[in-house]
Design a binder for these strands. Sequence first.
DNA 1: TTACTAAATGTCACCGGTTAGATTTTGACC
DNA 2: GGTCAAAATCTAACCGGTGACATTTAGTAA
Lengths: 365, 365
Amino acid sequence: MHFSFENSCEKIFIPIFAHRNDRIMHRKSEPTIHDIARELKISASTVSRALQNNPRISLKTKEKIKMIADAMGYRPNTLASNLRNRRSNTIGIVVPLINRYFFSAVISGVEDVAFKAGYTVVISQSNDLANKEIAIVQSMFANRVDGLIISIAMQPTNYEHLKIFRKKNIPLVFFDRSVAEIETDKIVVDDYMGGFRVTQHLIEQGYKRIGHMAGPQNLQTYIDRKKGYCDALLQNGILYDETLVVINSLTAEDGVTAAKHLMSLPTPPDAIFCGNDTTALTSMIYLRDLGIKIPEDIGIVGFSNEPFSRVVSPSISTIALPGFLMGQKAAGLILSQIENKTKTFQTLVLPTELIIRESSQKHKH
Amino acid sequence: MHFSFENSCEKIFIPIFAHRNDRIMHRKSEPTIHDIARELKISASTVSRALQNNPRISLKTKEKIKMIADAMGYRPNTLASNLRNRRSNTIGIVVPLINRYFFSAVISGVEDVAFKAGYTVVISQSNDLANKEIAIVQSMFANRVDGLIISIAMQPTNYEHLKIFRKKNIPLVFFDRSVAEIETDKIVVDDYMGGFRVTQHLIEQGYKRIGHMAGPQNLQTYIDRKKGYCDALLQNGILYDETLVVINSLTAEDGVTAAKHLMSLPTPPDAIFCGNDTTALTSMIYLRDLGIKIPEDIGIVGFSNEPFSRVVSPSISTIALPGFLMGQKAAGLILSQIENKTKTFQTLVLPTELIIRESSQKHKH
DNA sequence: TTACTAAATGTCACCGGTTAGATTTTGACC
DNA sequence: GGTCAAAATCTAACCGGTGACATTTAGTAA
């Protein structure tokens, strides 16, 4: 005859606790489905199925098992489960720096979609160093992430650590900064239009000699921003002057150095389109300390819309990027790859928005 | 007789690639140590040992194995290894928000020490939500992190998800925001002295009626900051006036609301010690837009030294926290717990630094 | 050549879940 | 009671590495 659970709690609970103490004394390890099985004198597979709500297991048994599991403080070991299933229900995301507003917005967007779909997100930062990126990516691979979302480091490398994902057919999505020779889903912002609009805006404000602080030209984003800048000049009949373009890594210090350099030219610029908000800020402070008035003497525009751009004075005109949306889309793309729904890879280009603030408004309305 | 590797590359390489293709056709999975073993007609344990540089394996065999492993594109499966070893070589870190400068500095500090010690760091953010924190922590537990470093969410809960770490003797370190009733290593900044110095400074600058925007009083940090504020008033013979203290969640909006409230008082304050830089900023902007002059009419001091505090105008006086150092120390504590070197738990209190900027300098030097 | 030991390698069970397929149980129906 | 299919449960192999212990091999001394 079958053991009836409802009217014999004692019979069950007493042995459990005896057993637990015993176990803790000797092995001091986590209870497993096998411990639960032994407790109930059933097989581990039944326990496993019950905990997964498998319809093959009777409701009565399921309840019994869940109750005991709870009482024993059972916690599934995802390592074992992942090993067996050859998947981890985890999505890796690698960004150059987590404390950049744009990147953390992307991360939040990814988390938003991924959590709802039942995935865990593991975050890592490369600090823009190729070696750290390689180590991180290999570790994520070794941990069998189901997919990887990445914005590559500034420091260039051969990208073998990423090519392997394609070779092994592991879902991979690039965002913002991608590797041209790797064919997969990519999601970028319209850097070209961003650069174009910034330049167009400066021209409309009456600036005549517009300089540009560009980022490393091994990254498409910076190439595109510069291209937008060039084309806007061209369309407005302004001659492109190479001496007005500085290429650097867009760090805070680079902003100062570049501003210093540009101002030392025989005919310095009367406006600077900075590759990001950080350089816009530091060069602006440098110029201000020199007694140069912004936007009257020199106009400044940044890129990325870091939160500080809005609150400094003068506030910095910039290009807003849809970070959160980008993260959501990236997560959507990786999920569709994971679920084998991807037919062909696509490159999404998200629109940007020009935000006009004080630093570039010569003509106030 | 033994197979000589050096003078028979062909014999080895041809079968390898034949085998690989074969494998890819049929199983399309990662090569394992078993595949390598089969290839070389040796046992898997020898391969495992060779790849770990175990001295029990001869140099010759090791070289042979590593060569083949490379040729086959072998990547160790950490899941399997972690399962068997019952440890993951991973340290989890949970912060309320990754894009707060302080928290990302802590993360970098943790990474700095952890990477050097051979650990991987997985980062997660709770968004200050109790439920998300619980989910994250449980997932980290299920993934068998070797230790957890956490700064708890503002939203209070019963902390069962953390108590379990102590119960199961899994290394746990709190930083910045900790749970009083859980006994483990903690590392905090000297919030009391921070609050005290800020208030003392404002008094020295000649402010008479100093208000305080305090954070949730379920978190020790905010209790201590407020206590420092109270004690500084007391020591200077200023009567503590409860109406000048506002308690909120210190969000950007809270800053405005609280400033509005304080200014609506019959006798409004002439200085505000804000619980963080965010509220300092937003309340400052609110006051500025009202035509109130800072620091002349009202002095403002924040807490945390967010990067923007330095660059806004007026620049915001604040308390600098040693985030990176804190991360390094936290990692040190968790490593010593992991390696069983911890004899007794300790609570480290790190010093803070008062940074005087424009927003509170009534008397310029 | 034999005996013996150190070095090298192999065997096998295990970590904790999962699942295909086998086996047992249940219960309806004749 | 007997038959049989559906429901419930069990068995055993597997995921990919690891390490205690067993076995084989090589090398030295007698």
